[in-house]
């Protein structure tokens, strides 16, 4: 029986397990390369930074990519240096390399991740659906300052979220933090006024439409470039707003989807709390 075990035995056992884990980790750390020796030159993702994956594909075909002793880049790959504001017509024009990996090179991965988030959100709404509604006993109305202030702040926060996911290929940020920022603005609206509830059906429709937009963009790539989620728009000069092809479109779709999804989750959590 678990409940017969005294508390102290459990704690000692837990400390033992944690100690074994940490000692094991530190034994592994001594085998790891030191900080100075780690270099992107020896990993796969250097071609993402160079924005030239075609080179990697050619080398894989020749069978010369995964050598034991990889030489520095300048000896085996002819490359054109990338200059901010000057280089044009690259394979992927986003200035933010993380964005170009998330949306372009590994876009299919991100589609699966958005699906996981959608399943989690719909699970929350399914589990918390259909609670009994009761009349609130006592109600403390939020003050006038909160009511007005959260509305003004919400407009600014909403604008900032849209800025973050439109400029995802130039500055740090992107669709996921932009959507989270919009959702926290909506959380502020919940706090400012008791009984506030957004248009639930509107949120659901909005979220489904933006999810569909992602898949439709992928299918357009399949038709135009013969590959799912391929970039079908021209890329411009690196550093401009219109420089990254379809990355901005997909990040707008992701931002709207994540924002409406997290707002719906917050709504499902908060609505029954207020009907105490």
């Amino acid at each position: 029986m678990m409940s017969d075990t005294p508390e102290i035995v459990k704690k000692v056992f837990a400390i033992f397990v944690v100690g074994v884990l940490i000692i094991g980790f530190f034994m592994v750390f001594t085998q790891m390369p030191k900080g100075n020796e780690v270099n992107v030159n020896n990993t796969v993702s250097r071609f993402y930074v160079m924005k030239d994956v075609d080179q990697a594909t050619q080398m894989l075909d020749k069978g010369t990519y995964f050598n034991k002793d990889m030489v520095p880049l300048r000896n085996d790959v002819p490359y054109t240096p990338i200059t901010f504001g000057k280089s044009e017509n690259l394979e992927d024009g986003a200035a933010n390399v993380v964005t170009s990996i998330v949306v372009d090179y590994r876009g299919f991965d991100t589609l699966g991740e958005v699906t996981v988030l959608f399943l989690a959100a719909s699970g929350v709404m399914l589990v918390l659906h259909g609670e009994k509604r009761k009349v609130p006993k006592k109600k403390i109305a939020p003050s006038e300052i909160m009511y007005v202030g959260t509305r003004i702040a919400f407009s600014v926060i909403f604008l900032f979220g849209i800025y973050v996911f439109i400029h995802g290929h130039l500055t740090p940020g992107g669709g996921f933090p932009g959507g989270a920022i919009i959702a926290s603005g909506i959380l502020g609206l919940f706090l400012g006024r008791q009984g506030y509830s957004p248009n639930k059906a509107g949120l659901t429709v909005f979220e489904s439409l933006s999810g569909m937009a992602y898949a439709i963009i992928g299918i357009i790539g399949l038709v135009a470039e013969k590959s799912f989620l391929a970039n079908f728009l021209p890329t411009g000069t690196i550093g401009n707003l219109f420089s990254a092809g379809f990355i901005a479109l997909i990040y707008i779709a992701i931002g709207m989807k994540v924002g409406s999804e997290l707002s719906a989750v917050t709504n499902a959590m908060i609505v029954d709390t207020e009907e105490d």
Binding site: G173, G174, I181, T266
Partner: peptide, 19 residues
């Protein structure tokens, strides 16, 4: 990793605690 920092600050420290 400024991208990850922004995401963690918005989601991990803000929304997660609120939920």
């Amino acid at each position: 990793a400024p991208d990850v920092a922004i995401t963690e600050a918005a989601i991990g420290a803000g929304l997660s605690t609120a939920i």
